[in-house]
Design a protein around this nucleic acid. Structure first.
Lengths: 208, 208
DNA sequence: CGCCGTAAGTTTACGGTGTAAGATAGACAT
DNA sequence: ATGTCTATCTTACACCGTAAACTTACGGCG
């Protein structure tokens, strides 16, 4: 608070990204962000056009973490880049929904790279058309699905087991109860394997 | 406006659902909803606890359109219910993200039904654990992916072709350009087939 | 030195949001 | 008539994004 560093777009984005990764994008406000930097909200507008511009800056940082597959890499390159993209979207769960809404340049580059790689794998234009939807929907759809689940267990509950038993009574939801117990035993995040399992299934069918 | 019918939870939900299906959930406000019913915003609170309660009511209506698979229906029942759920989520594109956030009773019933059907198909508890993630992530993930795309082309553009050519120049994005042209020729919505294609692929692998 | 332009930061204000609290009015039972 | 209950409206508060105007600091130039 005392000796405050000068404001800059980079510093604003740094702070905003850290905040958003922790509290979610809906919790971000110009007033709070300015305050946490030691300035007034309106001062941010000297370095950022408006809130959308700020969020776009955050999205570009996330997009910078996901590189498209090499055009001549074939299906293995698609697999690798899909996994990397999924991991980036796991690191920033708030980003996936916003990435779908508008099309940032980085997102277009990813689309182009994916399409190029599919065509480069010998697929026809028609096949590529459908294959693209399948692969892109899997990467982003699965990440959106995962991101939606984040925060579902209030995460600051001491007695997770008790909370679960009350929310999902065995007698009314026997199978859901069983499923929940598996999650509680496996630690928080197993679904990753489901991402790769389904991805391999889809890619294999495209390779035939 | 003149002779106004008395307010009721049902009437409020009717109006809100129609409004939200047309304008999206982020455009819904208590003031606008009240006004479009001929009442003040605060009057709605006599029939609805708060805005979250109202939105929950809307989500319950969407959930009522998707029934879980019959427990003894096997993979075909899962396929049918997945397609029905996907269609419901297409009718109400705003709903999918909200359905992921909190777990409504109807959503729990769907989860339970899907799990029961998987176990009933002879899958072990461990296999069901992963299969559930794959199937549920496909249904909701794909729907989320589709919903995210809605509104991407501003939809009220006369010269769609010209807009597209400017946004996606052939020389910089040749493959994306090709893909976009395919969409323009096919009409707005082909991806549906991708949903069923991938669904069958996933279910087939579970059947082996 | 004085002057001035420019950029950064602050203050104030406006219209929007959800909703708590209180006032009002009508219907109905005692 | 009196009390009670319910639905409605009015007012008010805290928060949001941000436009507009104001203050402050600084670098260049005579």
């Amino acid at each position: 608070m005392a000796a405050r560093k000068p404001l800059s777009r980079e510093r604003i984005l740094d702070t905003a990204l850290a905040y958003v990764d922790e509290h979610g994008v809906e919790a971000l406000s110009m007033r709070k962000l300015g305050q946490s930097l030691g300035y007034e909200a309106m001062s941010l507008y000297n370095h950022v056009a408006n809130k959308d511009d700020l969020v776009d800056g955050l999205l570009d940082r996330v997009l910078a973490e996901m590189s498209p597959p090499a055009p001549d890499g074939g299906l293995p390159a698609i697999r690798a880049s899909a996994i990397a993209a999924h991991e980036a979207l796991q690191r920033h769960p708030w980003a996936a929904p916003l990435l779908m809404r508008g099309v940032r340049p980085g997102r277009m580059a990813y689309m182009e790279g994916l399409l190029a790689c599919l065509r480069g794998s010998g697929l026809s234009a028609e096949t590529t058309y459908h294959a693209y939807h399948i692969v892109d929907a899997h990467i982003f759809g699965f990440s959106l699905w995962e991101a939606g689940h984040s925060g579902s267990p209030p995460s600051h509950i001491d007695d997770m087991r008790g909370w679960f038993e009350q929310m999902v009574p065995v007698d009314r939801f026997p199978y859901l109860h069983e499923h929940g117990l598996q999650h509680l035993n496996d630690g928080p995040y197993l679904p990753v394997s489901a991402f790769e399992f389904a991805l391999d299934l889809l890619l294999e069918s495209l390779g035939k």
